[in-house]
Amino acid sequence: MLTDPEQMNRWSTARIEVREPGVGDRPDGVGTLRTVTLPGGRAKLREIVEYSDFARVFDYRVYDGGPALLDHSGRQEIAPTATGCTVTWTVRMRLVSRVATSLVARTVRRQVAESLDLLADLKPGDPASAPTVEPRVVADLAEPRRVARDVLARQHATADRLTAADDPKQWFARVYSYVTDELIGVCDRGDVDNPDWVLALIPVFDEYYTRNLIAFERGDQCEPMWQTAWSTCELRDDRNPHVPVVKGLMSGVAAHIDADLPRAISDLHLAEYADRDLREFRPDYLRLSPVFSTASDRLLDDLPRSHKPWWTGIAARVHPQIRDALIARQGYDVQRHRFSAFAAAVELAS
């Protein structure tokens, strides 16, 4: 009644639709994607189911609610009582300003209360079958962390080599190493549920990246998107030096996301995680989205003044999520392409 959209739409003041089922093809399994249309029909939220302890705890998070919504997550908890059960529904949200957060939270609180009142008066549907959940084995991270740090050291060395040669490919090589560094940091901080999976992806990504860079430097044919990326990275413009830098970065990011991400995720899954549903890892994958923004900010700090786009000073005063949304409208939409890349990986792995 609380988590299956077909049942939820009997009582929820917001319309809930399954965009893609999660683990076990369930409408409430981990990794399920849902679209929530708020009352009035003008605003939509896109959610992902992050955790489910069936019949007790259910967690979800909004991964796309527009640039003004910085954070929005919910937890539904069920506790048995002598005469039935108590439902506790906690919603946490943060918008770009405190005033906006307070106003929207007040509205959401009222709508949730109205919805639960309707739910309490409904006759339950047929009991749902409990999902089969395999106990998660906590992986030893020592070896995958060592391998990831070795990869990071090689990537730093590559960026240093290109920098010493005044090779303009240095900028993408540097930001690539920052992405790897940030991925390791996410795992070290415990920001993901499956750090072993994230760490194991790093050397798989690196294999595609390094192989294509070596081929390009030797004059051999490399894969089409990487051929375009490295060629773009080598462009120079003495009058507007920031232009080829930005174009090279965007071209390299496109090669990494569009060409490498789907096959890297699929390859790793089939090699090491074939006994698990790939959709189980989608919440962690979406949690990694800020890594690209953070890596880009680090690179901007490295760029000489002449190589920085004119808008960087203004962008630094704007929240990264709003800034990324504005940039996406003008060029390559990182978040949209990352989203598509995971869907492509699921298709490849199946």
Rank of each mutant, 00 (worst) to 15 (best):
P5F: 06
E6T: 06
N9R: 04
W11G: 00
W11M: 00
S12P: 06
E17V: 05
R19S: 14
G22L: 11
V23G: 02
V23M: 01
G24V: 07
D25F: 02
V36T: 11
L38I: 14
P39N: 12
G40M: 15
L45M: 12
L45W: 13
R46Q: 15
F58Q: 05
G66E: 14
L70A: 03
H72E: 04
G74K: 08
G74R: 04
Q76K: 15
I78M: 15
T81K: 05
G84Q: 05
C85S: 11
C85Q: 10
T86H: 13
V87T: 08
V96N: 10
V96R: 06
S97H: 14
T101F: 02
S102F: 09
V104L: 07
A105E: 04
R106V: 07
Q111M: 15
D117G: 12
L119V: 04
K123E: 03
P124N: 10
P127G: 09
P135G: 05
D140E: 06
P144N: 13
V147G: 02
L152R: 02
Q155F: 12
T163V: 05
A164G: 09
D166Q: 15
D167R: 13
P168F: 15
A173M: 07
Y176F: 15
E182F: 03
I184G: 14
G190Q: 08
G190P: 14
N194A: 14
I202Y: 07
P203F: 08
F205W: 13
D206S: 11
E207A: 03
E207L: 05
Y208H: 06
Y209F: 14
N212W: 08
A215Y: 03
F216K: 02
E217V: 09
E234D: 08
L235P: 00
D238M: 02
D238H: 02
G248D: 07
A255H: 03
H256P: 00
L261I: 09
P262G: 06
S266H: 12
L268S: 01
R276M: 09
F281W: 03
R282E: 11
S289M: 08
V291Y: 04
F292A: 08
F292L: 11
F292E: 05
S296R: 11
L299C: 04
D302V: 04
R305Y: 11
H307K: 05
W311I: 07
R317Q: 09
H319S: 12
Q321H: 13
R323T: 06
R323A: 14
R329W: 12
Q330H: 05
G331K: 05
Q335C: 11
